[in-house]
């Protein structure tokens, strides 16, 4: 099946991912090494994206920041996905008081704008990756849990599930082997869209000034630094912003492509 969006997104993401892994490893410069002679250079052969006001190589810093953003996105998607699947599956399968409790908690969490307490949490936990991931996860599990619960509720009473229960399978086995695989499609789409949200949250926090602390750089911090310099050196804003935009767009395209693919295969079936 031809799915141009999925292919474009995957290709773009593969390139960005490769650069984010390879550049910080292979670059002759480090992300924090300062050089007073080379401040605010324009793009040139030795510094492809130029340098910032401390003479640090922007090419290295941008890809280092991209790696950090990807790390935040993937890790928080993994944690939230896990929490969402466990809570959603338990709520959907067992129902009753567990279900009420989990879903009411979800309602309450969902009603509060998450960025507000994420900011407070990072102020308490300090400016590091794990604080930010934890903050994102406090509200991130809700959407996943709702989707998984819905899918489980739908397939719980189907014949294959009843057959599994009658043949003596444990609840865990029914959920894990029989029900969850049916929820895999929507779950995958949900988590794909979750990654760019997490990346943007992290960048936003760094931009507001409660994110990753210097000299480490995320794309958000780089954009903040670039904004201070933008009148004189606009490319210092442009490069990290472009990489962030491309990264988010690539994952978005994958998500839209996956969603479309699911609809197409559902139509054919």
């Amino acid at each position: 099946m031809k799915n141009k969006m999925l292919l474009t997104g995957c290709g773009l993401l593969a390139i960005l991912f490769g650069l984010a892994i390879l550049v910080p490893l292979c670059s002759p410069y480090s992300y924090s090494e300062q050089n007073a002679q080379l401040q605010n250079l324009e793009s040139c052969a030795s510094h492809w994206f130029g340098t910032d006001k401390f003479g640090r190589d922007l090419f290295t810093r941008v890809w280092y920041g991209a790696r950090l953003s990807l790390q935040v996105g993937l890790e928080s998607a993994a944690f939230c996905g896990l929490a969402g699947v466990v809570l959603g599956a338990t709520a959907g399968y067992f129902g009753g008081i567990v279900d009420t409790f989990v879903m009411r908690t979800a309602d309450v969490v969902n009603a509060i704008p998450s960025l507000l307490y994420v900011i407070l949490l990072t102020l308490v936990l300090g400016a590091n990756v794990h604080g930010i991931i934890l903050g994102i996860c406090v509200s991130g599990w809700v959407e996943t849990a709702r989707i998984v619960r819905g899918e489980i509720l739908r397939s719980k009473s189907s014949e294959f599930a009843q057959a599994a229960v009658l043949s003596g399978a444990s609840s865990w086995r029914v959920i894990w082997h029989h029900l969850l695989p049916n929820a895999a499609g929507p779950l995958l789409v949900n988590l794909t869209f979750f990654i760019p949200k997490a990346i943007l949250t992290e960048a936003f926090l760094s931009f507001v000034g409660v994110g990753i602390a210097a000299p480490a750089a995320s794309l958000g911090t780089l954009i903040l630094e670039g904004r201070r310099q933008m009148r004189l050196y606009p490319w210092q804003l442009f490069y990290p912003a472009a990489v962030l935009g491309l990264l988010v767009m690539a994952i978005h395209l994958i998500g839209v492509g996956l969603e479309k693919g699911r609809h197409l295969s559902a139509d054919r079936a």
Partner: peptide
């Protein structure tokens, strides 16, 4: 729409400021 939702507002804000304001 993809572009608009991929580029966050803290990038749009300085970009628009730079282009239209400065």
């Amino acid at each position: 729409t993809i572009l608009g939702s991929a580029i966050p507002n803290f990038v749009w804000a300085p970009l628009l400021l730079l282009v239209f304001g400065l």
